Each structure stands twice: as C-alpha cells, then as structure tokens.
Computed example of a mutant assay.
Amino acid sequence: MAERKLYLYTRFERFWHWAQGLLILTLLVTGFEIHGTYSLFGFEDAFTVHNFCAWTWFVLYAFIVFWIFTTGEWKHYVPTFVKMFEVIRYYSVGIFKGEPHPVPKSERVKHNPLQRITYLGLVSLLVPYQMLTGYLYYFYNQWPQMGWGWELQTVALLHTAGAFAFLVFVIVHVYMTTTGHTVGAHIKAMFTGYEVLEHDAPAHDSRP
C-alpha cells in the first residue's frame, strides 16, 4: 500500500488545537463542579482555575482569529454543500463498508464540507456565545451599575447549555479522530503536522 505524507497543520495550528482542547476540558470539569455536580477540587479552587482558564482562552481565541485571517486559513472554513450528503452518507454507512472518503484531504481542501460547517459554527457562534454568557456571569455584581436587570439563574442556565454543547462536540470530535486509516492516524497528524495519504489520494486538489 503506497503512502504519501502531506504537511497540513502548522506548528501554531497544532499548538492552539491542543491548548484549546486542554482549556475546554478544564473549563468543563471546573464548571460542572462550580454548579455542584460533584466535588473534586473544592469550590474555591475550581472557581479560581475556571476563571483563569476563561481569560486564557479569551487571549488564545483572539490570536487564533488573527492567525486564521492573516494567513489565509479562513479559506478552509468557507462552508460548501458540494458533496455534503456524500460525506454524511460516508460517516453513516460507507465507513463501515470500507469505502474511500468522498472528500480526501489535500493542500487545497483541509476540511471536508461537514467539518467546515462544524468548525465555522464553533469558532463564530458557540465560542463567542460561551464567552459572552460566561463573562456576564462573572461580572454579575456590576449588573446594577450597568442597568441590567437579568436573572442570574437565566444566564447560568444559558452558560450551562453552552457547556453541554461543548461536551457533545468534544465527544463527537474524539470519536471522529478514530476514523482515519488507522485509529490513531488523525491524532498523530495533529502532533506531527503530517497527514498520511493512501493509494491515489490527491496531494494538491480534492474537489469540491
């Protein structure tokens, strides 16, 4: 079986991927403890760690957005419906039959249509939503000075709903990393930066 390596993930991209993943997991663990789901670190320590990670994530997110737009990586997140249903069918049925991926990775196409919409929604909607509800929650004591009369419980529920959305994403994302030509192929690629192309998968173009 012929294999070729394609360098797709830059050093900074790999760094922010793992850093963001660690921050999200830490925020989930400490956030659910703050809500009284269990006791692991203790409320005060969980609160301190949660806030530190929240501000760290905010700074990292700013760098990520800046990097995406200044390097031209935004092109890989432009949504497309070309071969969308083929990709959905592949992950629903084709992958279990050993069929080839309908949109193999290439230098021009780093993410398939399903990934594009998912990642775009994550970066442009879910992350800002979670940060906004989190910081509203954090600055609760300043609400009266700003003339805001919202219910704290409402903001807390909105923030918790976002946390569950992230939890679902993490679970699905981890599962999807096992769908490469080997169980650990995609995970290895996010460490080395190289994706392994099998058979006659194109290295320069993979339309859509």
Rank of each mutant, 00 (worst) to 15 (best):
T154H: 02
H186S: 09
E86F: 00
H76V: 11
A54I: 08
I88A: 01
M146Q: 10
Y119R: 02
S206K: 04
K83Q: 03
T26Y: 04
M1S: 12
L126M: 14
P104V: 03
T37K: 15
V174Q: 08
G193Y: 12
E73T: 05
A165R: 09
G149Y: 12
L28F: 10
I95S: 01
K75S: 15
I88L: 13
A163M: 13
I34R: 11
V174E: 08
R207F: 03
F164I: 14
R89N: 00
G180Q: 02
Q130Y: 04
T154Q: 15
G21P: 05
T192F: 11
F96A: 06
G94P: 03
L152K: 11
W143R: 02
V59N: 11
V170W: 08
V172K: 13
G193H: 07
Y77P: 06
G72P: 02
F166T: 03
F139V: 11
M84N: 00
H50W: 04
Y135P: 08
E33L: 09
V123L: 14
E195A: 04
F139R: 04
E44L: 11
V155R: 07
H101G: 02
L136W: 00
Q153E: 14
C53Y: 05
K75E: 15
K97W: 05
H35A: 02
W148E: 11
W148P: 01
V103C: 01
E13Q: 14
H101A: 08
V59A: 14
E33R: 10
V82N: 12
K83D: 01
Y9W: 15
L136Q: 05
I68L: 09
D200A: 10
F15Q: 06
T37C: 04
R14I: 09
L22D: 02
V196R: 00
V109W: 07
I68Y: 01
D45I: 15
G42S: 02
F169T: 07
L157V: 12
W18K: 01
P104K: 05
T179G: 08
T80L: 06
V82R: 15
C53G: 04
A185P: 03
W16A: 02
W150E: 10
A185W: 00
A163F: 06
A62Q: 10
P79C: 07
Y140N: 10
F96W: 00
F139S: 12
P102G: 03
Y90F: 04
V172R: 13
I68V: 15
F32G: 00
E151Y: 04
W74R: 01
T179Y: 01
